[in-house]
C-alpha cells in the first residue's frame, strides 16, 4: 500500500514537473508585454506626425521586424512616358491592393533576417508588396510600374523601411526591443495593427500584434465633417470668410492711405 502511495505521489509530482516545463519552455520563445507608445494618436490642429516607439520583451533571437500597415486603397495615377523627345503623361494607371501606408523597422537587413518565403507570407519588404499590387491601364503597361510605384510612395513618405529596431539586454538578462516608427502627418484616421516579428536562423519564432488607433479631434474633425457632410455650406462659408478677410485688409490699407494723404 505504501509502495502504491509512493508511486502515485511520484506520478503526480512528475505530472506537475512536466506541466511546469510545458508552460515555461514555450514562454522562452514568446514575445511578451508588447506596446506602442502612444497607443492612441490624436490628430489635432498642430499635429505634425510623430515617432511611435514600439517596446516588447523578446526571446533570444537573431533579429526583429516591426511592421505598420494601412488598409488597401485604390489610386488613379498618371504615368509619364517619352513621346518623340518629350516627357508626357501617356497613361492613366489604376493601382489596387496597395496599402495606404507601409512602415517597417528592422534590426538587420531583411534578407539576413528571414527567407523569401517568409517575407512573401508575412508581407515583409517591398519585394513581397510588389507581387501583390495590381496595375490596370487603358494603355499597354511597360513593366516598370512596380518599381516606379514604390519610388512614388517612398518619395511621398507613405512607404518607409528603416533600421531603427534595436535589441537591448536588460540588467536581469531579458532581451528588450526598442523600435521607432516615423508616423507621417498625413496618416489616415483609422485603427492600425503594429506587428512584431522575431526571427532566428531565418525562421519565424514568434509574432504578436498591437493596436494603434489614429483619430481626428477638435478643429480638424469639425472641418472634415463639415466639408464631407455639408459641402454646400462649407463652400459658401469658405467664400464668405475669404471675402470678409480680403475686404477688411483692403479697407484697412485704404484707410491708412487716406490718412497719409
Amino acid at each position: 500500500m505504501t509502495i502504491l502511495k509512493s508511486l502515485i505521489y511520484v506520478i503526480i509530482l512528475g505530472f506537475i514537473f512536466c506541466d511546469a516545463n510545458i508552460h515555461t519552455q514555450p514562454e522562452q520563445n514568446k514575445i511578451e508585454n508588447p506596446r506602442v507608445i502612444p497607443e492612441h494618436i490624436n490628430v489635432g490642429p498642430f499635429f505634425k506626425g510623430l515617432k511611435a516607439i514600439v517596446n516588447a520583451e523578446i526571446p533570444k533571437c537573431a533579429g526583429v521586424i516591426v511592421k505598420l500597415i494601412g488598409k488597401n486603397k485604390e489610386m488613379v495615377l498618371n504615368m509619364k512616358g517619352k513621346k518623340a523627345f518629350i516627357w508626357l503623361n501617356v497613361a492613366q494607371v489604376t493601382v489596387t491592393n496597395a496599402p495606404s501606408i507601409y512602415l517597417l523597422a528592422c534590426s538587420n537587413k531583411l534578407d539576413e533576417l528571414c527567407s523569401d518565403a517568409e517575407q512573401e507570407k508575412e508581407l515583409l519588404g517591398y519585394n513581397s508588396l510588389k507581387g501583390r499590387i495590381n496595375y490596370e491601364s487603358n494603355k499597354p503597361l511597360s513593366g516598370i510600374e512596380s518599381e516606379e510605384f514604390i519610388k512614388f510612395k517612398e518619395h511621398n513618405g507613405n512607404y518607409n523601411i528603416n533600421n531603427k529596431a534595436v535589441i537591448k539586454t536588460a540588467p536581469d538578462g531579458k532581451q528588450l526591443l526598442d523600435a521607432t516608427l516615423e508616423i507621417p502627418s498625413f496618416i489616415t484616421a483609422e485603427n492600425y495593427t503594429v506587428k512584431i516579428y522575431c526571427f532566428n536562423e531565418k525562421k519565424l519564432i514568434d509574432k504578436v500584434a498591437v493596436n494603434l488607433s489614429v483619430e481626428e479631434v477638435g478643429l480638424p474633425l469639425f472641418i472634415t465633417n463639415l466639408a464631407k457632410n455639408s459641402p454646400a455650406t462649407y463652400g459658401i462659408l469658405a467664400i464668405i470668410v475669404a471675402m470678409i478677410a480680403g475686404g477688411i485688409i483692403g479697407l484697412t490699407f485704404n484707410k491708412k492711405r487716406v490718412r497719409k494723404n
Partner: peptide
C-alpha cells in the same frame, strides 16, 4: 525644361 528632362518620378497623382 520639364518636358525635355527625365522626371524624377514617373507616377503622379491623377485627376
Amino acid at each position: 525644361y520639364g518636358l525635355l528632362v527625365h522626371p524624377e518620378l514617373l507616377f503622379s497623382v491623377g485627376g
